[in-house]
Computed example of a mutant assay.
Amino acid sequence: MQQELLNKTFSEKNHEEALSLNDGLMAKIHHSSDPHYCSSEPFRVSSYALILITKGKMNLRINFVEHVLNQRDILLIFPHAVYEIKDNSDVSFISIHFNKNYLKTKGIFFNSGEAYRMFQNDPTHKFSLSKEEYTFIYYDMLALHKKLNVPKDTPQIKNIVHNSFLELLYDLFLLKNKQKDPIPFAHDSKTELTNRFLSLVSENFKKEKRVIYYANCLRITPRHLSQVVKQVTDRTAGEVIDEMVIREAKLLLTSHVMNISEVAMELRFSNSSFFGKYFKKQTGITPSEYKLSNNIAV
């Protein structure tokens, strides 16, 4: 019952259903004056999204940390993070939503290792655009929005929409790379191995927190796995696992749905004492201290 409540609190069921009905790709234009503008409740969705602020500013929390988005800011939302819009006044934005199934069926693969490295030091996944860049991206998004509203029986419309989406996606990657001036990223067997590791961890981190488990799944030694993951993400395999566990722990502690013992049980720790020691080692504070300072009423 508690898990059902947590899932209900941090999800947008209607959003996911609508996305599925639209083949995994949607575009929306939002104005804070609209009666159905956006929920003020915390939400967690399983899809990706791009949000471009076209007017005003938006105050929001991402994984319970406060952030401000201003006009010409663009935000990349990754699956499973928790979002809460704190201020619904005088803001307009355009959003593009797409899920993993759309990417997969269209032959697009987000490189997990590259995305992890690109955004690990930028927890908001946000960057600001110049006026020229904003105009460029804004019209990309408007064009995609317009094409998504063309009748579905229009000849070749799926290919037209897909090409418009690709243009937007690659334009954004070009801008992001230009702004961060990243070290060239090698696409090789190490990248592939790291992607497989990240996928395994995201599916199993609650029950398996040992590097040796993932190394055995991938049929390599723990040392080799950590060396490869470190080269690709700048984090060891153990550090990546710990990050995912702590992120989920913070989510559960902040939800008001579970107490500390129940969070420890949900994350498969043997007892709350062991969980508390683990949490303090990773964050510098106890679960109780974190829960007291980060509660969200639901």
Rank of each mutant, 00 (worst) to 15 (best):
Y278E: 01
D188M: 09
L75A: 07
D23K: 15
I96M: 03
N101G: 03
S272W: 04
A49D: 10
Q3Y: 13
Y116C: 06
L193N: 02
E203W: 05
N14G: 12
E239F: 02
C217F: 02
E114T: 05
Y278G: 06
L253M: 12
H145W: 11
H36Q: 12
I246A: 04
G284T: 10
Q231N: 12
D73E: 11
I160E: 11
A297D: 13
A297Y: 06
F173T: 09
L253V: 15
P287R: 08
K8N: 11
M118Q: 07
I260H: 01
A81I: 08
K280V: 05
N63Q: 13
I220K: 03
G113Q: 07
E4C: 03
N259L: 04
D140R: 12
G24I: 09
P123K: 03
S270P: 02
A264I: 07
K86S: 10
C217A: 09
F136K: 11
G113S: 14
F43R: 06
C217S: 13
K146A: 14
L175H: 04
K209W: 00
A237P: 03
I220S: 01
K291V: 01
Q71E: 14
S226K: 00
I94L: 11
T191L: 12
K281H: 05
N59D: 15
K147Y: 14
F10T: 06
E167P: 02
C38K: 12
S40N: 13
K57E: 14
T9W: 11
L166K: 12
N63F: 08
N294R: 02
H187L: 14
F185Q: 06
S189L: 08
V229G: 08
E289M: 02
Y214H: 07
I212C: 04
I96N: 00
N195F: 05
Q227R: 11
I285P: 00
T54A: 07
N177V: 10
S40I: 05
S270L: 08
G276T: 08
F279P: 06
M141L: 14
S273N: 07
K209Y: 03
S33T: 14
C38I: 14
A297V: 11
R196P: 03
P151H: 08
E12W: 10
L174K: 12
N294V: 06
N259K: 10
Q156I: 07
E192L: 14
N216V: 02
E132M: 02
F119N: 01
L225Y: 06
I29M: 12
R117Q: 14
T54V: 02
T105Q: 15
T236G: 01
Y139I: 09
S20N: 13
